[in-house]
């Protein structure tokens, strides 16, 4: 096993850490950095519960990313989307639209929605649905999640304009 010294910026804070070669980003976040908001749902990149944002707001599966390859990277997790004590518009929209039930998929779903809107700020309903593929929710049937993303899109357009 090789060990790798990396600097990983999570939610704005730099962490200089030594990671084992076989540790995924998900394990390092949860076990080494004690940040359990990113979830293990399947470990195979199917469910999206482990999604985190890269600096360009694209979402990746942290369960299929080796931590050692992330030296110098900046990532954002669900708990890092809050600015001050103000929730990210996507998080607020999930609350307003009751788009959460058991909540286990939610951090990943929120992260995924932020990335979706970063790429396509005014998506159609169909684009939202396609964009949410890769994030599984077993509770909601997706209706309220789609509604929340639509609402967040409008809210973010409002603040930008």
């Amino acid at each position: 096993m090789s060990k790798h010294m990396i600097t990983l910026n999570v939610n704005g804070e730099d962490h200089d850490i030594v990671v084992a070669s076989n540790k995924t980003l998900l394990e390092v976040l949860r076990e080494q950095l004690n940040m359990p908001d990113t979830k293990y749902g399947c470990g195979t990149g199917e469910c999206g519960a482990c999604s985190v944002l890269l600096e360009d707001n694209s979402a990746i599966n942290s369960c299929l990313t080796l931590a050692a390859t992330m030296d110098g990277k900046k990532i954002t997790t669900a708990s890092g989307l809050e600015k001050g004590d103000k929730l990210h518009p996507v998080q607020q929209a999930f609350i307003d639209h009751a788009a959460v039930q058991c909540g286990f998929c939610t951090p990943g779903m929120v992260v995924k929605s932020v990335s979706l809107l970063a790429k396509n700020p005014r998506p159609t309903e169909q684009e939202i649905r396609e964009g949410l593929e890769g994030s599984i929710c077993r509770c909601t049937g997706y209706v309220k999640i789609v509604n929340a993303v639509e609402a967040a899109s409008k809210a973010m357009a409002g603040t930008a304009g």
Binding site: G45, G48, L54, S58, A59, I60, N61, G134, S135
Partner: peptide, 9 residues
Amino acid sequence: FATPQLRNT
């Protein structure tokens, strides 16, 4: 192809 997250890597 696959999912949006997987397409990013």
